[in-house]
Design a protein around this nucleic acid. Sequence first.
RNA 1: GAGCCAUUAGCUCAGUCGGUAGAGCACCUGACUUUUAAUCAGGGUGUCGAUGGUUCGAGUCCAUCAUGGCUCACCA
Length: 497
Amino acid sequence: MSEQERNELNEVHRVRRQKLQHLYSLGVDPFGKKFERTHTAEEILSFAKDKSKEQLEQGTIEVAVAGRIMLLRPQGKAAFANLQDLSGRIQIYIRQDAIGEQVFEAFQQLEMGDIIGVKGTVFKTKMGEPTIKVQELTVLTKALNPLPEKYHGLTDIEMRYRQRYVDLIVNPEVRDTFVMRSRIIQSMRRYLDDLGFLEVETPTMHAIAGGAAARPFATHHNALDMQLYMRIAIELHLKRLIVGGLEKVYEIGRVYRNEGISTRHNPEFTMLELYWAYADFQDIMDLTESSIAHIAQEVLGTMTISYQGKDVDLTPKWRRASMVDLVKEAVGVDFSQQMTLEEARSLAEKHSVKIEKHHQVGHILNEFFEQFVEETLIQPTFVYGHPVEISPLAKQNPADPRFTDRFELFIVGREHANAFTELNDPIDQRQRFEKQLEEKEAGNDEAHEMDEDFINALMYGMPPTGGLGIGIDRLVMLLTDQPSIRDVLLFPLMRER
RNA sequence: GAGCCAUUAGCUCAGUCGGUAGAGCACCUGACUUUUAAUCAGGGUGUCGAUGGUUCGAGUCCAUCAUGGCUCACCA
């Protein structure tokens, strides 16, 4: 450490450096090595729980645990500390006469935040707390930064996101949320695997950003001198695999959309997309319902949950209602009647629904739905029958071609899934893409691009197929009762500082 | 992109009417071998987000900027 560095450190940091040097002078490596653990904190607690003080003292149980010192209560020539590992916290008791003066001196150079390993026996204190009586102490890692306040922890939201590592150390519920996230995804995977779905990986860099209506991130490949886009959906590649005969495929992966950031939107987020040959959107509805209910039961142990104070019942069967009926129910406007664009526009004006130049009747119906219905759908609700104009990849309803065999799942007023019977007619698909290009001309810069290779794939024949997309982050938010998408992303995007 | 709010010690927060910066934890010194947000005695460690302005004097008032939060817009 140079003189200049020393001057730049404040007292807290200077003292930690001094203790580091002190450890070196005692022949202790402050950044130690591998440590063999026999137990986790939680294992010791559950073992000791129903043993009496006497029972523990009779059969001496040797344990070796490692963790971070979260609380430290020195008491002269002895000390109590709370050690934290992934499973939880366990109290340890250190006495100079048990570990020797030399090691105790090293221990005195330790403070909250440092990582140690201890070997010893389990006992219960006067207060009945299961505790490890330390016989051997090993310094594993000295922390040079102090931890946040031991009682309030780290509450500054910005710092929690920017320095998630600190957040994870001091806020156990944050760790729990991310453990839960992992279990939710694991449960989903297992559910689909058991149904015979094949997990695949497709490119995240696309020459044409298709499969959804969104602005992509653009990038460039130097060697090929090629414009590339980060994918906005997984859809078109998975459907190519259905053409290829893989029949039941899914991918859980990151997609990227160059759009606004909010408590429900991060520029990169995780989607599940799934395609099932010879099925339709009704089958997908059943699958969506059963898989989410299954995950809730498996991960939370219940299908009735509470989200931000709202009770939500995920027990099947869920309500199924058409978009047209829901709009009629909410505002009394009946879009099942044939109507001209002019009629739809005047209805929009009457109900103060904002419309854009490129809007057709179907777009206006969707605006009605979003403005008057969406946020009212608290209990899980499948909304089906989306207008063809906003569904360029979905098959039209055979009885009424103004609508598609598509559904979206709404829970707590938010979209959680989007699915349809996939359009497999390449001639129709080409026309839909052309319609999208017209929209683009008319000013919708999120309209779909033409994808000639995808059309080519369809021309080899894609069997009738049902497809599904689930926003995994939102599902995790729902099941872990988190208000912001940033609370279920380990490292949400933040402006550089 | 717009509106509102926030930014003070390592962390959590006070700071009155504009008058020279304050508490708890952490840290330092000392006491303490069954404590548990340990306790007891002593010690304040700071670019008050940044830059301008008003003023004899600004953490405090004004302007601009930065970062974040919430709401809205866009979207999933």
